[in-house]
Nucleic acid binder design. Structure first.
Length: 304
DNA sequence: AGCCAGGCAGAGA
DNA sequence: TCTCTGCATGGC
């Protein structure tokens, strides 16, 4: 049988697709031969960025309608220049913006984002991706993918995950997080917390609701509020962002975490969440280079 | 071998 | 309100 392939293209300035899809906000995108493959909602999606114009090409294998769902996900209509302009004018932000040109925030589906970040505590991004992948393969619905490609799965619903035993969830290598995932899936599945209604609340009220879920504290809540709900001031503070605050803003001073968090709540302005993502990506890229350089003895000589 | 990873919950001070 | 600890797993 022949499958259709539906394609479109957006001309968008300052959009680094690779940085955006790899920056630890979404966990299902993989690159194959210059094409980023993933799943948005119940559709397989292929994305490619043209080297010359920077235009983004999108492809699906089922009828895409008007593509509005994918434009929303990628936030291609967002005015990134205005976002960057809103950042505080200080050396750390200037450095972060300089090394992360075109980094964007996505707008993800709320349940997938919440469930994915429930797996994130004291895990590295590749391990989170692995857990998400196994959950999808074992409990997600099979959906249409490209001819001759791997099987493709939707992210499993809260209802399905609520019905899975904790032991079966643990077999996805998610460890102690299994009981949190199951517990939260149960609350969401029975309507104990409406993820739709959370989006109608103020940032503080929305965060208050989310942290009532088992396994969801302020950090994970802020990730969901930023990456799925799009609250522009949500500011997740993980070990990397804490490191950025310490090393870039207060080097050599042993400030307490609580003091740094208070600083972060007021310093970064109306697009603090975006600023956070730039700092996060900036310090991770910097660390990545250091790690890679340890690979060869000769470059070790250059040190830092 | 020990330390760290996009943390959180529960206990105790 | 704070600090401390256990919790799975994998990579270095």
């Amino acid at each position: 049988m022949t499958k259709h392939r539906y394609q479109t293209e957006w001309r968008v300035m300052e959009y680094d697709l690779a940085a955006t899809l790899e920056s630890g906000q979404a966990f299902r995108w993989t690159e194959r031969g210059g094409c980023w493959e993933g799943v948005v909602g119940r559709r397989w999606v292929g994305l490619r960025q043209r080297s010359g114009t920077g235009a983004i090409e999108a492809e699906t294998v089922v009828e895409p309608g008007d593509w509005g769902w994918l434009k929303d996900y990628l936030r291609v209509d967002e005015d990134l220049g205005a976002v960057l302009e809103s950042f505080p004018k200080d050396p750390p932000m200037a450095a972060a913006v300089g090394t992360c040109r075109g980094l964007r925030l996505l707008r993800q589906e709320t349940w997938e984002c919440l469930a994915s970040f429930l797996l994130s505590s004291t895990k590295q991004i590749p391990q989170i991706r692995e857990g998400v992948r196994l959950l999808c393969e074992r409990f997600g619905e099979l959906i249409e993918g490209p001819v001759g490609g791997d099987r493709v799965f939707a992210f499993p619903t809260a209802t399905v995950l609520a019905g899975v035993s904790e032991g079966a969830l643990r077999e996805c290598r998610i460890g102690f997080r299994a009981k949190y995932l199951k517990g939260t899936a149960e609350v969401v599945a029975r309507g104990g917390l409406s993820l739709v209604e959370v989006g109608c609340l103020s940032l503080d009220e929305a965060r208050e609701r989310l942290v009532s879920l088992p396994g969801v504290g302020p950090k994970i809540a802020n990730c969901v509020l930023l990456f799925a709900y799009g609250f522009p001031r949500a500011f997740p503070v993980d070990v990397w962002v804490m490191r950025a605050l310490r090393e870039l803003y207060f080097p050599g001073r042993g400030l307490m975490a609580s003091r740094l968090k208070r600083f972060s709540e007021t310093h970064f302005g109306p697009q603090a969440g975006y600023a956070q993502q730039y700092l996060f990506h900036h310090v991770r890229m910097r660390a990545g280079r250091v790690v890679n350089r340890r690979g060869t003895e000769e470059e070790k000589l250059y040190g830092d």
